[in-house]
């Protein structure tokens, strides 16, 4: 069935079954492959996108439930917070294999959009749904703090 969805500010009509997870609509129908598949059961966070600005695990979210919600993917993030996070990620050389990093970056942007000066506990709570099998966690934490300082300055 044809479903209308708004992604990164652009409206698309996609012809998929309503039970199709948002992840596969993004990747297979729209070609937005920055959002990754890691587990399919909302356990690893590699598929994190924003729905109306809030983080969502797109692998376990059926497209039919989207309604009028606006989706933002790693391809569509912009603004001061996103830039600060991505710069901090690069400056710290956070990524190793990099496969989980779209999701990590999305979760970090969401955190810093809510909490300007996150504590370690804030970081733990916001980021512990994102698995990094390379365990680049030391640098993820440091980069979030770097980005927070940039945003304050």
């Amino acid at each position: 069935m044809a479903i209308s969805i708004k992604v990164n500010g652009v409206r698309h009509s996609v012809d998929v079954d309503g039970d199709t997870p948002l992840l596969w609509v993004l990747r297979d129908a729209l070609g937005l492959t920055g959002t990754k598949f890691g587990c399919g059961i909302a356990q690893c966070g590699a598929c994190t996108v924003f729905l109306n600005g809030k983080p969502l695990r797109s692998c376990a979210f059926p497209i039919a439930a989207l309604g009028d919600g606006e989706v933002t993917t790693i391809e569509g993030v912009n603004g001061r917070t996103a830039r600060a996070v991505q710069r901090a990620w690069t400056a710290r050389d956070v990524p190793q294999c990099g496969y989980c990093q779209s999701g990590q970056v999305m979760s970090a942007i969401a955190l810093l959009s809510e909490v300007r000066r996150p504590t370690d506990r804030d970081i733990d709570l916001a980021m512990n749904g994102n698995i990094c099998r390379c365990a680049a966690y030391v640098r993820i934490r440091a980069a979030i703090k770097d980005a927070a300082r940039t945003l304050e300055g």
Partner: peptide, 20 residues
């Protein structure tokens, strides 16, 4: 600095699963 950091921080790095 690592040569692959930027593309991995902005989602443009291409993995096998991204091939279309």
């Amino acid at each position: 600095r690592r040569l692959d950091s930027a593309s991995k921080a902005n989602g443009t790095a291409q993995f096998t699963i991204d091939i279309r």
